[in-house]
Amino acid sequence: MGDVNATYASLSDKLFIATIVLYAVAMLGYALEYAFGRRAVKAEAKVLAGAGGPDVTEEETAGGHVNERAERLGITMNQANRAGQVALVLTWIGAVLHAACLVLRAVSVGRVPWGNMYEFIIAVVLVGVCTWLYVVTAGHAARRIGLFVTLVAILLLGTATRLYTEAQPLVPALNSYWIAIHVTAAVIASGIFMVGFVPAALQLIRRRYDTVTAKGGRLRFPITLGARLPEVANLERLVFKLHVFAFPLWTFGVIAGAVWAERAWGRYWGWDPKEVWSFIAWVVYAGYLHARATGPGGRRLAPWIVILGWLTMIVNLFGINLVVTGLHSYAGV
């Protein structure tokens, strides 16, 4: 009992750094594609033209520059799009290293790799990145949106470095097969909520962009980002899909947590701070699903509720683990 394999543990730490670096480079690639890649409008033109004869306009524009700034920098649309391709490949490699980082942690301590907050965040981000890779591979979102997903991923992983905890076996309260059930469900749901938050925020930006441009008003950052974002309806559908998947998982995670709490602490629900905020997040996300079914007013509100939901998740992760003391204080910091 209690043996930690130091070689694997330190290798895991190195992989963690490599993962962050890869995601950062990938983010740069996505950013290049986002800024200087082919316009969404052009892509639609291609589809239309593609049905007919050879795609002349596409050939012409692809080698050209998207705007004056791109020309000044000497970045053609082709190059920018290739940067996006490279970014996606780097994200894949990053995800593999990321997974290896967790697996080595697990091997080095002989348990599931989410026994403290550092590991929990790494796992959540891995699920987020994998979800994103699925979304982009299945064609549910444009590749360049990876810019925002990798941004969130890097921010969270960056926070994890501040919470670094040595690889260690579990404390007795966590030493149960229920950790594999309850925490895994929480990790997967959190990861998908994380990715679901991104298109919700983008949806708001795009919506604002549409309103402002329709009125002919002046655009300011971050609303200017809206020019390269997918249609509101597409983003909205993606948000819904992700949450329809994550919400039942979160529900299951909370229920599994209650079953475990009964075993470990004698009661299935005791309003421990973590339990309170899991409940709040559940209620908020349930509110999102209901708001979406409540006509146009509710639909307008829905992305805001998703943002609120992700905020409750963040409070639950950071606020409750680091500020408040409760039964779930396993942060290890």
Binding site: W271, V276, G287, H290, A291, T294
Partner: peptide, 27 residues
């Protein structure tokens, strides 16, 4: 109405917050 249910849902979420910040006798 669904609208009221939504408002009550959010009221419930907000009402739960102080219990996680202030010490609770039950905890």
């Amino acid at each position: 109405s669904m609208r009221t249910a939504l408002i009550l849902l959010f009221a419930l979420a907000v009402a739960a917050v102080p219990g996680s910040i202030l010490p609770q006798r039950s905890v």
